[in-house]
Design a protein around this nucleic acid. Structure first.
Lengths: 189, 189
DNA sequence: CAGGATTCCTAGCGGCGCTAGCAGTGATAG
DNA sequence: CTATCACTGCTAGCGCCGCTAGGAATCCTG
């Protein structure tokens, strides 16, 4: 009885991931407005109601994609920070990595930081990957800086604004590098 | 013949504004997801197809609301800048006014800077009010500063990030004043 | 092998943005 | 004054959406 249930659970977990992956691929290929429960069900070769046995609704699927993306972002930022030649350049490296991530995976980025989400930000039940990603920004400022969390919040806000305004064509996508340079110059502590 | 047509056009223009106002009120009262063409038609006491004789589609209605909002924002920013005691404080005053606007009219702000829009940003056919609003940020930096447009873009991006992340609960809504203070301190030229 | 639990499908609900097609109204020409 | 005609704005409906009820089929258990 146990072995059978274990197999079932494995299969369920596998299908769970299949759905998340399909949603992400569809969004990255055609944008989130093309991700409907019908198309998603067709893509994973199950009927629509199966989706609802795994997720509370469409928003929960988006949130699952977002959480995956946040883990990847955290890893990307950590790598950039650690690869920086000296701590003084860490901020620039992390900021550039962030914008790079947003530019290269716009749909994934939207799931993480633009679309409505179930994820808890800045609270007790904030998922660890999200904490980790934010922590990378914090780590770019001196440990003795009492306001480094505040600095990190504003840095993140500025980068988010640049990413999202550029993606929606509200600022010219060309000048990101200059904007990044200005931001880092002004914010370095 | 001319007088009659003029009356008709006046009536059309009046109804046009009626639709825009109704859309804005509905959005501000219940959020944009509650603004459907059916509910909007009911509210202006006309049938659905009438909306389409005034606008190309729902997005065009949102854009019309956005344009109104941008005019109001431009006026709000200009007033804040001119009321600043000295030029050195203009940046702080304008930034605070911007965040104030975003906080107090979140739905209107979304129409302007978050939802998909037909409005042309940063191009030859950018509407004058939008230029004016952006110009208020530019005016906060010294005229001899060759990169003041760039400064303005990054300032705007940072404020937008703060506004939008705070509104969606992704950063604590409490710390806006401290974040504003940090931003202005770092960006003043 | 019978009984029961579980899995997953078909079908459908109410609502969405949008449009075809037709009444009814009102201006115009003889 | 009336017949015509253009136009305004309606009803009805299309194809889609997120989501769910209910039953058929399958699989494990005793």
């Amino acid at each position: 009885m146990s072995a059978i249930n274990e197999r079932r659970e494995r299969e369920r977990a596998h299908r769970h991931q299949l759905i998340v992956r399909a949603a992400r691929e569809l969004a990255e290929a055609e944008g989130w407005e093309a991700v409907t429960t019908r198309r998603l069900a067709e893509r994973v070769e199950y009927s629509q109601p199966v989706l609802y046995s795994h997720f509370n609704g469409k928003d929960a699927i988006v949130s699952a994609v977002a959480l995956d993306g946040i883990s990847e972002l955290a890893a990307h930022l950590r790598h950039a920070r650690q690869a920086a030649p000296e701590p003084a350049h860490a901020l620039r490296a992390v900021c550039r990595a962030y914008l790079e991530f947003a530019t290269e995976r716009p749909a994934l980025y939207q799931a993480m930081f633009v679309l409505p989400t179930d994820l808890k930000f800045a609270s007790a039940e904030t998922p660890p990957p999200l904490r980790a990603a934010f922590g990378e920004f914090v780590s770019c400022f001196r440990p003795d800086n009492e306001r480094r969390e505040l600095f990190a919040e504003v840095t993140w806000s500025a980068l988010h604004g640049m990413a999202v305004l550029s993606d929606s064509g509200r600022i010219p996508p060309g000048g990101q590098e200059e904007r990044l340079d200005f931001l880092v110059t002004q914010f370095a502590d």
